[in-house]
Every structure is written in C-alpha cells, then in structure tokens.
C-alpha cells in the first residue's frame, strides 16, 4: 500500500475523534497541490500525497480551536515543536499523521525548467523523477534537482513528533555541517556587495505580506507592526527604506523562532529570497546558544531566556 492510501486509511480511523483533518488535494493544475480541509471521512478520496505537497500546513494550527488532525512532513513537524515551546497550541488537540519525506518539489524551479508553460499533465515515475507534459512537449526532471533549497540539507526527514507514522522512518543522509554553508558563503562577501544584493532584491517587494501571512511563526498577523499606524514603524511610501524595514521586522521577530520551513520564500510572488535573513539569525543562535529551533519541545527559544553569564557573548571593545 502506498503512502497516499495509508494516509487515507489513517484519516478515516481518526474521525470522529477529530473534527477536521488538514491534508492536500490537487490545486488548479497538475503542478500545484493545495491545502484540503476534510470534515467528513468520505472526503478523503480527493486527498493527494506526492512531492508537490510542499506547503507547511501547520501554519493553520494556532488559529483552529477544535480538535484537528494534520498531515506533516519532517520539516513541518519542527513547527509543531516550536509551537509547543511557545505554548501556541494544545498538543492534546492535535492528532499528527507523520510522513517520512524524501524531498518535495519547488514549483518555481519546475516552472523555470518548463519555460512557464501551462502544464497538461504531471506524473511521477519510479526513479525519483517528475514528468511534466506541456503543449511544447514533455520534460523529465529529477526531483532532487528541483527541490527547494531546504531539502538539500534536510536533517529531519522523519517527523520529530507524531501520533501515527506512515511507512518507515528515514534517516538523513545530508551532512550536518552543510546546513549553514550558504549563509557562511554569503557572509564572506563585502559589505557593499551584501548591501547591493539586498537592495536589488527588496526593491521588487510589493509589500503584499504573503511571506508574513504564510509564515507559521508570524502569529501577530492582524496586529503586525508593519501595518499598524500606532505604533507607526513604517509609512505607506514605497521606498526601499520601508521595504528594508519590513523585512528587518520579520527577521527580528523570528530570531530564534524561525523553523526554516521556507514558506516565506516559497510564497513570494516577487521571488525574493526572504528566508535567508532568518536563516542567518538561526546560524548565530546555533553558534551562540547551541540552539536549534523546533527539535525539542522542552527547549526555550533563546530570546525568551538568558544566562547570567553568557559563555559565548564577549563584551565588545571600542
């Protein structure tokens, strides 16, 4: 029995203990998966499970009051753990169906490969490829070549927390030292290069706030200081300065909280690499406090606590 069938069966079993189950169904075309809220077991026949199911569904959890079931991948499970650290959800009200994951697909990368053609059909073969048919022909792409960046260094393919596990656990085969390699490489650039890089990227930002709203750890949402007039952090002008400020707000508020799910980057219609800023802070949290987000429910986010004597923070000399 394949994973999709097992997930369906598990979902059927957890009703009526849960009122809703959050999983995936096909989106507007074969290349897109979309969240699917099931409220009666019969609905599971529309469920899909394949590497296009990339979205981190856990973002919906804090706003749902009833008991809910949810399908999570390894990376998604880190969000749940982070929620538990911060007391944002009640564990007793979530039934977690964990699915070990071999990597998902970045739709943006596939679209680039197929020249942004409308897709006619999408199938997966048994050798780890996605085959995309368009009017102009067929393209076979190795999933590993079109996965989001996070998958290339994934340390936790098997969910770290679950009630039901689908299939067998998978161990990561990606070297741990590589997780922040991209950050170190970027850090090595000159200040001017880095400044120019961000100015070019942020200039495109239209402040649609999709990155913020899709972010599972951005929990203020409606009262986000990027939009409030009181306090008035940023104006309605469209200058680079306001855009820069908005992204610094998102990054600072995610310090030691970002679970590196990459949603912010996945959803950005302007293709801005916004997860990078938060990943940088995570790299520093690891270095300073040996803290990693979303791996242990008993941890405390580093900005929520302190040590009287900080082993790694030295006084700065002038």
């Amino acid at each position: 029995m394949n994973n999709a069938e097992q997930i369906k069966e598990t979902i059927a079993r957890i009703f009526p203990d849960v009122e809703t189950v959050i999983c995936y169904q096909q989106g507007f075309d074969g290349l897109h998966a979309t969240p699917y809220f099931i409220s009666i077991p019969e609905q599971v026949n529309k469920l899909i499970w394949n590497p296009l199911c990339a979205q981190n569904l856990t973002s919906y959890l804090p706003s749902i009051k009833k008991k809910v079931g949810i399908v999570v991948k390894g990376c998604d499970s880190r969000t749940i753990i982070q929620y538990l650290q911060e007391g944002l959800i009640d564990r007793a009200k979530v039934v977690i169906i964990g699915v070990p994951c071999t990597g998902v697909i970045s739709v943006k990368k596939v679209l680039r490969e197929i020249g942004h053609q409308p897709v006619v059909d999408v199938v997966f073969d048994d050798n780890g490829n996605i085959v995309v048919k368009t009017q102009k022909g067929e393209k076979r792409l190795a999933i590993a070549d079109v996965c989001p960046d996070k998958c290339t260094t994934c340390q936790y393919p098997t969910p770290l927390v679950y009630d039901h596990l689908i299939g067998e656990p998978i161990a990561s085969n990606k070297p741990k030292e590589d997780v922040y390699k991209d950050i170190r490489e970027f850090d090595a650039k000159t200040l001017e290069e880095k400044r120019a890089y961000w100015e070019k990227e942020f200039e495109r930002c239209i402040r649609c706030y999709a990155c913020r709203n899709a972010c599972p750890m951005c929990i203020c949402q409606d009262s986000c200081i990027a939009e409030t007039r009181e306090p008035h952090w940023i104006s309605q002008r469209l200058s680079l300065q306001e855009k820069f400020m908005f992204h610094m707000i998102h990054a600072a508020h995610l310090a030691g909280r970002c679970v590196e799910c990459g949603e912010c980057e996945r959803v950005c219609p302007m293709d801005i690499p916004v997860a990078k800023l938060k990943k940088k802070i995570n790299a520093e949290m690891k270095e300073l406090f040996n803290y990693e987000t979303g791996v242990n429910p008993d941890d405390k986010p580093p900005m929520y606590t302190f040590n009287v004597d900080e082993a790694k923070i030295k006084e700065h000399k002038l």
Binding site: P35, F37, Y60, I206, A210, R212, S235, Q236, R237, P269
Partner: peptide, 27 residues
C-alpha cells in the same frame, strides 16, 4: 469552507489588474 485555506495576504489584490482600492495617509 471555500476560503479556509486563504492566508489573507495581499498577493491576489496587488497583482490584480482590476483591483483599485486605496488608502490615504498623512506621513
């Protein structure tokens, strides 16, 4: 039921060629 999944961002409206709602603020 139909928009339970919407995250209430501005992507759809800001990218829409027909959306025209505006705000006026004194900066």
């Amino acid at each position: 039921q139909v928009v339970g999944k919407c995250v209430s961002c501005g992507a759809c409206t800001y990218l829409c060629p027909t959306c025209y709602c505006f705000n006026i603020t004194d900066e």
